[in-house]
């Protein structure tokens, strides 16, 4: 385990998550509607951040597959907030790239009546810093 590496610390700081509170019940993963799409699941994010394995997470498509629905945050009995970790890893990656994948101006063109509001918010969360 590589505790206290810089990347992990940054993720912990920007997310404000206390990964040590996790007691590995897996209710986050049990709740996750994007489970099948995710390479790493919410509980793994928590565990891997704790172990300092940020590189693996950063390289995984999971950070974009997460729907940002926050069901894992809502259901966690100990207030760990896995989605915030997913978001923090993603932000770390996007910031390094130095550009947004989605600009606010580009949104109107993408709007679709069928698209739920939450998806839009989630997309902004995911593709902009």
């Amino acid at each position: 385990m590589s505790h206290g590496n810089n990347a992990a610390e940054q993720v912990l700081r920007s997310s404000g998550v206390d990964v040590r509170k996790c007691m590995r019940c897996g209710k986050c993963t049990a709740t996750c509607p994007a489970f099948d799409e995710m390479e790493y699941h919410p509980h793994q994010f928590v565990y891997m951040v704790e172990k300092g394995e940020i590189d693996k997470l950063a390289a995984s498509p999971s950070i974009y597959k997460c729907l940002s629905c926050f069901a894992c945050v809502e259901r966690c009995p100990r207030g760990v907030e896995p989605a915030k970790l997913v978001e923090a890893v993603r932000l770390a990656v996007i910031r390094k790239q130095g550009m947004n994948h989605l600009a606010t101006d580009a949104i109107p063109a993408l709007l679709d009546e069928e698209m739920p509001q939450q998806a839009l918010v989630s997309a902004l969360r995911k593709y902009s810093k």
Binding site: R24, G26, K27, C28, T29, A30, T31, C32, F35, D36, H41, H43, Q44
Partner: peptide, 12 residues
């Protein structure tokens, strides 16, 4: 019932 099997890393 939607659940997780953490040891198998599966959603059941």
């Amino acid at each position: 019932v939607q659940a997780s099997d953490l040891l198998a890393n599966e959603q059941l």
